[in-house]
Nucleic acid binder design. Sequence first.
DNA 1: ATGAAAGCGCTAACAT
DNA 2: ATGTTAGCGCTTTCAT
Lengths: 341, 341
Amino acid sequence: MNIYDISKLSGVSVTTVSRVINGSDKVSEKTRKKVLEVIKESGYTPNAFARGLGLNSMRTIGILCVDPADANSCINLTPAIGYLERELRRNDYDSILYCLEYNMRGKEHYIKMMLDRRVDAIIIVGSFFIESNPKNNQCILDAARSVPVFLINGNLEGDNIYCMLCDDFNNSYMATTELITTNVKNILFLYTTLSESEKRKMEGYIAAMNDHGRTVSQDYIRCCSHDVKESYRFFESLAEEGLQYDGIVTCEDTIAVSALKYALSKGISIPEQLSIVGSGNTILSQYCYPELTTVDGNYESLCVTAVNMLVRHLEGIPAPSRAVISSRLIRRNTTKSRNKE
Amino acid sequence: MNIYDISKLSGVSVTTVSRVINGSDKVSEKTRKKVLEVIKESGYTPNAFARGLGLNSMRTIGILCVDPADANSCINLTPAIGYLERELRRNDYDSILYCLEYNMRGKEHYIKMMLDRRVDAIIIVGSFFIESNPKNNQCILDAARSVPVFLINGNLEGDNIYCMLCDDFNNSYMATTELITTNVKNILFLYTTLSESEKRKMEGYIAAMNDHGRTVSQDYIRCCSHDVKESYRFFESLAEEGLQYDGIVTCEDTIAVSALKYALSKGISIPEQLSIVGSGNTILSQYCYPELTTVDGNYESLCVTAVNMLVRHLEGIPAPSRAVISSRLIRRNTTKSRNKE
DNA sequence: ATGAAAGCGCTAACAT
DNA sequence: ATGTTAGCGCTTTCAT
């Protein structure tokens, strides 16, 4: 059953059928009715491939992200897939997923696959896709010559590349300030991989310390694994080392919750003896006990903004090349109340 | 740049170019070299839409799942998206995501959209997509007349429908037995929505109770929300009611962790005064304190099996219409050791 | 081993 | 308002 069959059955040309299908207003009400009727009772559905061939688009967007099943992946990026799909579908775009492992192996190949599939645009989710070695970002710049590229919390200058950024700096600045102003003395800053995002967070921590007259010591800036067992050992080693701290600012809720677990297991009282701030406002931050104070990076806004810009861009409306979305601190029970200080 | 350009540039027919692209062995080594060379230096990429039109397939699979950003969604299904994408891509299939909200609104429409896109098969992730009212499943049966449908933990009889099932019955049977054999007296069974999956779990609980000579009381079978705050109130109301329990078997890690939080906040010692078993082996079960004993439903195996069957089916190899994958109990720290009983 | 040509089903420019 | 027709770029059948 194709458009010619419908054309014959309804006694009009294929052009008219096409017009009806695509909602053109240059069709008389009478023929429209007739055609619609024939379509309905024949169960005809336009062939998407033929349409794609003619229009050179099937309205699909390639989403490059880390595997949501990868234990090492950043869990606050998983909901982003949902936000993006929802917003894209609202605008009648399909989302094709391209999941990479955390080691980024195959990034270039995946981008090539998207281009081969003739996606209308590419969305890249996560700051780690932008690597410090410029050579590894060349494939993104190249892709942008074919289709617009939108980065969710990724920072890369280039033609046809659009960056949606979390305010990572302010994220940690707020977290650190919260601890300082609730009388925490020695604040540890914990990162995992020092991606671009985490670098900006570190700068926020340092700035907040400086702005409040605290001295920053490299001893208090540490790398800690996501992994539950490894992070436990990490906190044990800090104790052996004898490092004194009564506050922790982290780049990820996972680490914050690990710190919490360690403290609980050692009888350290939270937040009296130790205050902790996470990052991400992930599901972990709500299901732990005590509930975690954390900074929400507003990934939903990032995703909504990205899709808005994408849609407008594809409609030919010029879009700004970057947007920074503000974070917000969510006070829960792993930090001291400001009244009690 | 299309196949005709390549044809001209390399001095052979488009047929031969097509043969080279598709790896036919009926091409002389010499011409193959020549054509490949031209393709390489021209940067030519076959047009996927044209190919799709000719073959009537673009090797895409539609995945119907709940929105991973939906707070009410079942969090052990999120990794399934990753497993499926990984396995499908291994077999050179693209995954198009169709995320539904937990209320299932638009299910029928989404399935129609997939069919309109001419996907090669449909994968449905989650038992709740199969509803108790048969009328709401008709769209799935209808879809199966066009393309094979694979259900991840969904149970529906029908032509061209393939079911991968968790052993939900045994899941709760094991959990309940574990509590009984570690001397727990009064075991609460908590579900959230009583989906098909949860019904089977409830049956497992009842069977384990009966098999060990325990009497089952309806008072001990309760519905509890996923939501952190609501579930807290739920446990408070149980206390007001005066219900005595020293063990909980749940249908979801979320509920188990909520129970844990409540217990911690009330000074109830875990597992001595209260033993808890979750379900899902989700990220929550590892990041809580004490770490949660839980039943792993092996979603990864379910997904791998589904994709294997899908690929073979599409290659024309007959596949069994259902597979049940066994669960396994993961003992951690919210249940008593078997030696100490 | 290679090539000519028909066909896949739609859209859009152009004509009426 | 409606129709004719030429693409879109590939695969495949059938010759040679």
